[in-house]
Amino acid sequence: MKQSIFTIDYNIALTSDVYKMRLIGDTSDIKRPGEFVNIKLDGFYLRRPISVFDCDEEAVTIIYKVVGEGTEYMKTLEYGAQLDVLTGLGNGYDVDKCGDKVLLIGGGVGVPPMYYLAKKLLEAGKTVSMIMGFNKKEEIFAKEDFEALGVPTYVTTVDGSEGIKGFVTNAMDMVEYDCVCTCGPEPMLRAVYDASKTTGYYSFEERMGCGFGACMGCSCKTKYGNKRICKDGPVLVKEEIIW
């Protein structure tokens, strides 16, 4: 974990309530896809944990949804604004353990961490496919980013306004895979868990206090013992999950 000051490069709307923010600063502690950063906002006591969408030597990019007062404020921040950010949080996805034909599944704002993971998996020479699930056409974002990587990308929408009608699980049979990596709302994770025939890595969300393992605010029970979503997670292996 590292605490440092980042400068906003851009903060733009992707949909009516989803924003993309690029933060320039010291990214040296961001080691694995699936990690998150924890952002201090003026006037808010707790930091905002947001997953990493992309990362290179000079900047980290996040995609976040406006869901409350903190993110409502965050969307107003402009180019040049500085933010106190903790980086290198969470255990992320271990690319080496992810199999050779990896199916990525993201639901809503569970899509962003799949992008950095896709890049790292491709770098490691693995075959990657992506399924992204949304409620409706207007909510879709980041599809072109995955396509630019050359990743076969399937979109599902609940109302059928774009792509395959239904849930992400409706697209799973169209892909050959030996491992699933997924992030999204818990009901979606559960549906993927039931529908998948292979092992997999599931990224969970929980309200956090500190985000670095100190407060026990985000504990969960697993088959391998009690775990903290922020420190031992957010990525858990399929075999340890208790629903």
Partner: peptide
């Protein structure tokens, strides 16, 4: 193990925990 989650809420200048 403690209490069920969510265990944390934010407040102006503070927080509530129920670990």
């Amino acid at each position: 193990f403690g209490n069920p989650t969510p265990r944390i809420a934010e407040t102006p200048n503070g927080m509530i925990n129920s670990v």
